[in-house]
């Protein structure tokens, strides 16, 4: 028993099975990220005086670089598929390898960004003052913070200057935390959205590695089938890129 239309299209729909499957899957992904984006909108509209929506907390040059990386990977992905369609296997191997490399680079940059945030702290004092900076020392009675120095206006390059160490009594602190999800609604949605997106990048990368190495054996027996499979993983990959195209301005720039 063979399931029909795995490689060739069904005449009346003009589609092979996996193409319908992946588009349906992407439709549900639209709703998944749609749910999170609508949460973002909801939280942002509802931001109150205690938690004003922050601007410029993320590293824009790094984010821009990562956007370039992901866009390039999308281009190499579509080229990998086109190479298979033109039956140029060596070229496919190169482009697919580049796609995987880009995915890896993206994840590494993301890890660097996360790590950077985890080492940044924010302190709310009971008198209403709010200080961010690097943690120098943490004793049971007090914190020592190297406070960030903020200049007027918005800056492309992140501000890395620090003021003189400042000791803060724990008794004066209302709440303090590093820049983790629990820090504020902004970081909550930032880490959730980018974390989920990162998982998608990782998943796509694993699938691509499979089609790059063991899965590419299929080329010898049925090159069209391999091309179809790569098209499917490509559709997923472009979708991941597409989500990032929205994530980048929404989280980094606005």
């Amino acid at each position: 028993m063979e399931i029909p239309y795995t490689v060739t299209a069904r005449p009346d729909t003009g589609l092979w099975n996996a193409k319908i499957g992946i588009w349906l899957f992407l439709a549900s992904e639209i709703m998944l990220f749609g749910g999170l984006f609508s949460a973002y909108v909801f939280l942002r509209i509802g931001a109150d005086a205690a938690n004003p929506w922050p601007h410029g907390l993320l590293n824009v040059p790094v984010g821009t670089f990562n956007t370039f990386v992901l866009i390039s990977s999308s281009m190499t992905m579509v080229m990998a598929w086109a190479s298979l369609k033109m039956r140029k296997f060596a070229q496919y191997r190169i482009y697919m390898g580049l796609t995987i490399l880009c995915a890896l680079a993206f994840l590494c940059v993301k890890a660097y960004e996360y790590n950077d945030k985890f080492h940044h702290y924010g302190v709310w004092l009971k008198n209403g003052e709010f200080i961010t900076g690097h943690l120098e020392e943490n004793t049971p009675e007090s914190l020592t913070i190297l406070p960030d120095i903020h200049h007027e206006g918005r800056h492309f390059w992140p501000e890395t200057e620090h003021g003189a160490p400042r000791e803060i009594k724990k008794a004066d602190i209302r709440r303090w935390s590093n820049f983790t999800p629990k820090f504020s609604p902004f970081f909550a949605i930032y880490f959730t959205l980018t974390g989920l997106h990162g998982l998608h990048v990782f998943g796509g990368m694993v699938v691509n590695i499979y089609f790059w190495l063991p899965g590419s054996k299929l080329y010898r027996t049925n090159p069209e089938h391999l091309a179809n499979r790569v098209e499917v993983s490509g559709l997923f990959w472009h979708f991941v890129d597409l989500v990032w195209i929205f994530l980048f301005p929404v989280l980094y720039l606005l």
Partner: peptide, 14 residues
């Protein structure tokens, strides 16, 4: 199921 469940998945994650 395809289109209504994902927002709950997002909510569950949150």
């Amino acid at each position: 199921l395809l289109l209504a469940f994902p927002p709950l998945e997002a909510a569950s994650v949150m």
